Simulated scan of single mutants.
Amino acid sequence: MEARRAPDAPEWRDPKRYLWLLALAVPTLPLQAGALVAVTGQGAWWWWGPVFAFVLLPVLDHVTGEDGENPPEAVMKRLESDRYYRWCTYLYLPLQYGALIWACTRWAGGALSVGEGTGLAATTGVVAGVAINTAHELGHKRDRSERQLSRITLAQSGYGHFYVEHNHGHHIRVATPEDPASSRLGESFWRFLPRAVAGSLRSAWHLESRRLQRRGRRTWSRHNQILTAWSLTVVLFAALTTTFGPAVLPYLLLQAVLGFCLLETVNYLEHYGLLRERLADGRYERVSPRHSWNSNHTVSNLFLFQLQRHSDHHANPLRRYQTLRHFEESPQLPSGYATMIVVAWCPPLWRRIMDPRLEQHYGDLRKAHVRPAENASGTKAAPRA
């Protein structure tokens, strides 16, 4: 397993060091939408969040292309310990919640039509979805304060159980039939979505119940990390509803649903059809860069704290985003997440693009993670690839 090496340079400096701050433009999307409406007088700009994420970013990805270079091994330790990169993620939170409170003032003001309010909810939902990615970056770290910030970040989307399931379920069972967050060849996103949402919730509850039982504690108690995470959402939504009135609650719920659906779309594309081999002792082979789809598209990586270098993340979960590496053996997405999310929402287009890449990766689709399907006789059969 060999990473692509950047030229060794003792004085190497991260050429994207200050570009990581671009990620902080995402939590301000509602404010950007309001500014665009004020300047143009056009209420359609309340939908700026989806336009930014699924139109502008794909164009920028196409224009700027890919960056597959890795930091030299000699600077990895210094790069990991540089607290500047941590503050880039920490600052997401005050901007995220400042924008959410501001959005509530717009929803409560009564000046927005239903369509405009829904557009602002969609824009705020993009913030919530990307916030789950920020929580993902923070939640993998050993620092207790970062893990606590991760739970706070998840409150906006009501997806606090992600912290438990992702760290203790998904990372262990990734690219296996036991993982609800690993999509299968032939499985559309719309079939995957309810399976992933329900399966991840069940898995998180089982994992947390087992953890508490091992420690001699009751499942329904203040020690339950899922219950405490959900309570943050309840307190947040109750406080906002009390402060701004019940008119904001439908929009808060809508943006939360859109946020976690955006997360599950990313889950869908990250491991589509990839399967770890089961060994003779019944266990699965160790997770490697071959078990995650990767993307080096520069702009999407900047806005997502390099989530698209997902192969190295699964091989080395504690590695911070600025040191994630590209591996030649990782299967590569044809574009960045901003583009592939939209493609995933159109199953025929997704399969036309991704199934040949999966076949090229394995050489034989029978080695892939195939969606079970019933044939006429009732026995399990693989769908046509």
Rank of each mutant, 00 (worst) to 15 (best):
S209G: 06
G199L: 02
S182P: 06
S209N: 14
L212E: 02
L193Q: 06
Q213Y: 10
S182V: 08
G216K: 02
H206L: 12
A204H: 06
R211P: 00
E208L: 03
E187A: 00
R202Y: 10
F192P: 01
S209Q: 14
R215H: 11
A204L: 03
V197L: 12
L207T: 12
W190M: 12
S183D: 03
L212Y: 05
R214D: 06
L185V: 07
A196Q: 12
E208S: 00
S188T: 07
R191L: 11
R215V: 07
V197P: 03
L193P: 02
R191W: 07
W190E: 10
R214G: 11
A198S: 10
F189M: 13
A196M: 05
S188C: 04
S209D: 09
G199P: 13
P194F: 12
V197M: 05
R191P: 04
R215E: 15
R217N: 07
L193H: 09
F192M: 03
R191H: 04
S203L: 15
S203A: 11
R211G: 00
S183G: 02
L212C: 09
R184E: 13
F189L: 14
A196K: 00
R210V: 06
L207E: 12
A181W: 09
F189I: 10
L212Q: 05
W205N: 10
S209T: 15
R202N: 02
G216W: 08
R210S: 03
F189P: 02
R218G: 06
E187C: 00
L207D: 13
S203F: 04
R191C: 04
G186M: 03
R211I: 04
G186I: 10
G186C: 07
R217T: 11
R195G: 01
L212R: 06
W205T: 14
W190N: 08
R218A: 15
S209E: 14
R217L: 14
S188W: 01
A198Y: 10
W190V: 09
L207Y: 02
A204E: 01
A196S: 14
V197W: 13
R217K: 15
A204W: 04
R214W: 05
L201V: 11
R191F: 06
R210A: 08
R218D: 10
R195A: 07
S200Q: 15
E187R: 00
P194H: 14
E208A: 01
F189G: 05
R215P: 09
F189V: 08
L207F: 05
W205I: 11
F192E: 04
Q213K: 15
Q213C: 04
W205H: 13
R217C: 10
